[in-house]
Design a protein around this nucleic acid. Sequence first.
DNA 1: CATACGTGGTA
DNA 2: TTACCAAGTAT
Length: 348
Amino acid sequence: MRDAELSDLLLRWYDRHARVMPWRVSPQDRKAGAVPDPYRIWLSEVMLQQTTVAAVKDYFHRFTARWPTVSDLAAARDEDVMAEWAGLGYYARARNLLKAARAVVADHGGVFPGTRDGLLSLPGIGPYTAGAVAAIAYDEAATVVDGNVERVMARLFAVNTPLPVAKGELTALAASLTPETRSGDYAQAVMDLGATICTPRNPACGICPWSHACAARDAGIQAELPRKLPKVEKPVRRGTLWLATQSDMILLQRRPDTGLLGGMLGFPGDGWDGAGGEAPAAADWSEIGEIRHTFTHFHLYLTLQAAELPAGSVVSRGHFVSRRDFSPADLPTVMRKAYDRWRDSLSP
DNA sequence: CATACGTGGTA
DNA sequence: TTACCAAGTAT
């Protein structure tokens, strides 16, 4: 079977089964002339990096309601954007989002670059996102390779080379199928196929439009692909978080712009992320419990120390914020876990 | 090329 | 409960 027949088959499947998403223009609306907004496509694609559609939806609605255009976002305050991103993870995405929005306004007159190569020059936009935005927003015939596409190609062509070694090979195979027309619909179609039918476990080959052409299915090894190199074991780190109040104030600390939870609000800590080393103030600290949290590359156990600081206390780290100006929703999840435990210890 | 970088859902 | 997984990028 020729490659063009395979892509046509998938597009016909997509016409009937495209999932509805807040940022997506349906294939029917596209055929009627509707054009996706590059800003919304870019925002959604950055949010979707290593993140599920379900987790992204509410964040996408809040961001687009608050900042409807790239110019609005470019004019936003850093702390507002970081607070709005809190809980979504991979916070470098939010910092780069702002940098890119400001670059679009400052260097491109408020209009997104019109090609994949142009998009690639913006912070936070790599090969996948550049291709996805170019294909979806501009119908450029860009090859789009995400985890779904890697899995679909590995199975369709029975590639036994493990990831990430196989990345280049899978990209070339994906390129061999990418059509010159309806490139945006096609890119979304392959990803939808991977997300709904060609799933990591128990792929639904019985209803797959490509099952007849699938080499892995033919060999009965579809569930074993793509193969992956063994993962390194996560080490355990331990440390302390200091939870201090002073009358109606809470002690918070903005984290450095780079590294773990970069740019996010949190509580002063020590012993687990290279920062600190001692309590931020002399006080009668009492241990109120422990939280555990697993990051991408390590398990973390944090001892929680709480204290009411005497009036006039000098703190070595952080700054006091009135409870009225503090929202736990602005915290990254590990910090919100600590806050929730703290609050529970105060009013059980 | 390997590592750092979050979180919530699922088996 | 543990381990894996999700529309990756930067360094």
